[in-house]
Design a protein around this nucleic acid. Structure first.
Length: 586
RNA sequence: GCCACCAUAGCUCAGCGGUAGAGCACUUCCAUGGUAAGGAAGGGGUCUCGAGUUCAAGUCUCGAUGGUGGCUCCA
C-alpha cells in the first residue's frame, strides 16, 4: 500500500471494493468479510465464503452485473460513527470484524462504517471502514474484476484461508484502456516469453520445476555478468574461492540453519550413513576456508568471492520463471573484518554496486530503491550479537547510504536476527520489486563457527562477517535485465552483436572477411546466408533484437565500407570496417 | 503448501464425445533477391501422464505432473 494516490482515485477504489462486496453478499448472504483495501493497481476484498464454497473467475460476469445494478441505483454513501459497544453489537456474529474492531480500539481510532442508502433513506448495505468514499455509488465509473486468489486472514498461513477477489476501477474507458495497454506492454517484456523467443533459457519437465537450463546465448549473458562484476570488484581486493555443492548436515547444525531450514533443503544420501544436503547458501562453507588458518588482524579484511549455484526446495506455488527458482546461482561474497572496518568495506561494496548498475543504465532514480534494515527498537532482545557492534554497524550502513546518496529508507524491525543490512530492490516489467544486490552484516555466524583473529595486543577476537551479492542470483538478475532491456541488450552484453547479410551468394567471401575481422577483436557475429530474401533476413535480425545488421552487396564490396542498420532504427549508415569494430569495443 | 485458471506439432493457437488442423519454424526444390515475411512440395502429434465414465474420450470425471496470477515463504 502506498499513499501517492490522489484522493479521488483512492475514494473510487474504496467504493468499488464496497460495491463488489455488496454484490457478492447478495449472491452469498452468509459470506463473512476479511479486509478490503485499495492498492496501487486497484482494490481487493477478502471473503470467507463458508465451508466448501468457492468463487472462480467464471463468476465475475454475474458479480459485475450485480455491481452495475448497484452503481445504477446510485445509492448515497453515508459515513456513520460508532462506539466500541455499538460496533461489537452490530458485528457480533462476524469474528473477523470483531478482530478488526479490537485493532481499531487498540490504536485508539474512531470506529466508522459506510452505508449505502436508498431513495427512501433505508440502509441497504453497511461495512466497517475508515474511508473515505465517493458520495454515491453512481459516481464509480468503469470497473472490472481481474483475478481471484487465496489469502490468509491477517496474512498468517496458520489461520483461515480466505478468497480474495481483485478488481480495478477507473473514471472512464480511456483510463481502463491505458491500464490494459500497460499490461499488454508488460507481457511483451516478460522474461519468460523473451527468454524463449530469443533462445536464452528453457525448462524441462524431465529435469524439474524451478530448474532452469541455459542455452549458449543465455550462458554468454550469465558469464558476461559474472565477469563484469569480478572485474569491477577486483580493485577492492576480492579473491575467488571454490566450494563443493554438498555438505554434511553438521555444517548447518553449527551455523544454526538446520533447525529452521532443514525442510527447505534437498537431502542427499551416499553409500554410508552420513547425511548430506545440497547447499542452500555459501557462507558456512566460506567460514571453513577462513577457519583453516590462524588469522592476524594484519590479514583483515579477508574477502572471498564466488559465483556458485545453491539449491533450495521452494514450494511449487512460489516458483516464477527465472525470478524464483530452485537452483540459483549467487554471485556471492563474504568479507571477514573487524567491526571498525565495516564502514570502509560497506562503502566499497556500494561503489561496486553503483559502478555495475550504472554500466547497465539501471542506477537511475526510480529504477530501484534501497532498504536499510535495522533492529526493532521496541524488541531489541530478539537480536543476537553485542549491542555495541550492532549500533556501530547500523550507523556505518546509514552513513554509507547517506554519503553515497542512495535513495534509502530506514526500516525498523527488518534486520535479520544476525545483523543489519542494506538491500537494493529493482522492478520487473509489472513493477514487482526483486531484491538483487545486498550488503548484510553478520555477528552470529563468526561466533558460532568460532572464527578468530589475533588483535594487535595478541588477544583472540571474533571477526565480523559481511555477506554481499551484487547481482543477487544470476537467474533473477537475468529476469530483471531481460525485462529492463525488453530483450534488446546493449552491445557489450548481447550474445550476438551483429548479423552479416550478404545480398547474394556472390558477396559471401567479403562477408567472411568481415566476420574474420570481427572475430579478431572477440566480437560476436554470424553470417546469415542468402537462402532467404534480404528482406526476410533483415526482419529476422530485427525481431531477434540483434544490435547491428551489416549488409554487404556490390556497393559495399566496391567501396570497402559496411552498410549498418542498428536495432530499432529505420535508416542505415555507411561506415568503415574499423569504425564498426570500434562500436563493438566495451 | 493455499485459492483460481491453464496444458493439442519446436512456437502461437483452432478443434470440445465419433480416434487430429492452421500459421510460423524445420527439410528439399525453385528463385540470387538492396532494406521487416518470394514460391512449391515434404516431414513432424500414444492431443502432458495415470485411472474412471461411455459402444466410442484432446473432448466428460478424478488424481498426478508442469505452467500462470495472487497468498504464505524467500536463510
Amino acid at each position: 500500500m502506498c499513499n501517492n494516490h490522489d484522493d479521488l482515485e483512492l475514494r473510487r477504489k474504496h467504493t468499488a471494493s464496497h460495491i463488489m462486496t455488496y454484490a457478492v453478499k447478495m449472491m452469498h448472504p452468509d459470506v463473512k468479510l476479511g479486509v478490503g483495501p485499495w492498492t496501487d493497481e486497484g482494490f481487493y476484498q477478502d471473503f470467507d465464503l463458508g465451508e466448501g464454497k468457492s468463487i472462480s473467475e467464471k463468476d465475475f460476469k454475474k458479480i459485475q452485473k450485480k455491481m452495475r445494478w448497484i452503481v445504477n441505483k446510485n445509492f448515497k454513501i453515508v459515513r456513520q460513527e460508532f462506539t466500541e459497544a455499538e460496533a461489537r453489537e452490530i458485528w457480533k456474529d462476524d469474528k473477523y470484524k470483531l478482530e478488526l474492531i479490537d485493532g481499531i480500539v487498540e490504536r485508539g481510532e474512531q470506529i466508522s462504517a459506510y452505508d449505502f442508502v436508498d431513495e427512501e433513506g433505508r440502509t441497504v448495505y453497511r461495512d466497517i471502514c475508515a474511508g473515505p468514499h465517493l458520495d454515491s455509488t453512481g459516481d464509480l465509473g468503469i470497473f472490472k474484476l481481474t483475478k481471484v486468489a487465496a489469502a490468509y486472514w491477517r496474512g498468517d498461513s496458520d489461520r483461515e484461508t480466505l478468497t480474495r477477489i481483485y478488481g480495478v476501477a477507473f473514471p472512464n474507458e480511456e483510463k481502463l484502456a491505458e491500464y490494459e495497454h500497460f499490461l499488454a506492454e508488460a507481457a511483451k517484456r516478460d522474461h519468460r516469453k523473451l527468454g524463449q523467443e530469443l533462445g536464452l533459457f528453457t525448462f524441462s519437465e524431465k529435469v524439474g520445476a524451478g530448474l532452469p537450463l541455459f542455452t549458449p546465448k543465455g550462458t554468454f549473458i550469465r558469464n558476461k555478468v559474472e565477469d563484469t562484476i569480478m572485474k569491477i570488484q577486483s580493485k577492492y581486493g576480492f579473491e575467488r574461492v571454490n566450494i563443493p555443492h554438498i555438505t554434511k548436515k553438521d555444517l548447518y547444525e553449527t551455523s544454526g540453519h538446520w533447525a529452521k531450514f532443514k525442510d527447505d533443503l534437498f537431502h542427499v544420501h551416499g553409500k554410508g550413513d552420513t547425511q548430506f544436503v545440497m547447499k542452500p547458501m555459501n557462507c558456512p562453507h566460506h567460514t571453513q576456508i577462513y577457519a583453516s588458518q590462524m588469522r592476524s588482524y594484519r590479514d583483515l579484511p579477508i574477502r572471498y568471492a564466488e559465483t556458485t549455484t545453491c539449491y533450495r526446495d521452494e514450494q511449487p506455488g512460489e516458483l516464477l520463471g527465472l525470478s524464483r527458482v530452485r537452483s540459483l546461482t549467487q554471485d556471492d561474497g563474504h568479507i571477514f573484518c573487524t567491526p571498525d572496518q565495516v564502514l570502509e568495506e560497506s562503502r566499497n561494496l556500494v561503489k561496486v554496486i553503483r559502478e555495475f548498475y550504472t554500466k547497465l543504465g539501471m542506477f537511475n532514480e526510480g529504477d530501484f530503491k534501497v532498504s536499510l534494515s535495522v533492529r526493532d527498537s521496541a524488541n531489541l532482545s530478539k537480536y543476537l550479537g553485542a549491542t555495541e557492534n550492532w549500533e556501530k554497524a547500523e550507523s556505518f550502513l546509514e552513513e554509507v547510504a547517506k554519503s553515497e546518496n542512495l535513495p534509502y529508507e530506514r526500516i525498523e524491525g527488518e534486520a535479520a536476527f544476525y545483523g543489519p543490512k542494506l538491500d537494493f530492490q529493482f522492478k520487473d516489467s509489472l513493477g514487482r520489486e526483486w531484491q538483487l544486490a545486498t550488503i548484510q552484516i553478520d555477528f552470529v555466524q563468526p561466533e558460532r563457527f568460532g572464527l578468530e583473529y589475533i588483535d594487535n595486543e595478541g588477544k583472540r577476537q571474533t571477526p565480523v562477517m559481511i555477506h554481499r551479492a551484487i547481482a543477487g542470483s544470476l537467474e533473477r538478475f537475468m529476469a530483471v535485465i531481460i525485462e529492463h532491456f525488453a530483450g534488446a541488450f546493449p552491445v557489450w552484453l548481447a550474445p550476438v552483436q551483429a548479423h552479416i547479410l550478404p545480398v547474394t551468394d556472390a558477396h559471401l567471401p567479403r562477408a567472411e572477411e568481415v566476420l574474420a575481422k570481427i572475430r579478431g577483436i572477440s566480437g560476436r557475429a554470424e553470417i546469415i546466408d542468402a537462402s532467404d530474401t534480404l528482406g526476410k533476413r533483415l526482419r529476422n535480425s530485427q525481431t531477434g533484437k540483434i544490435p547491428f545488421t551489416i549488409i554487404i552487396g556490390d556497393g559495399e564490396v566496391k567501396s570497402g565500407k559496411l552498410t549498418i542498420r542498428k536495432y530499432g532504427e529505420k535508416k542505415d549508415k555507411q561506415i568503415s570496417v574499423e569504425e564498426f569494430l570500434g562500436l563493438l569495443e566495451e
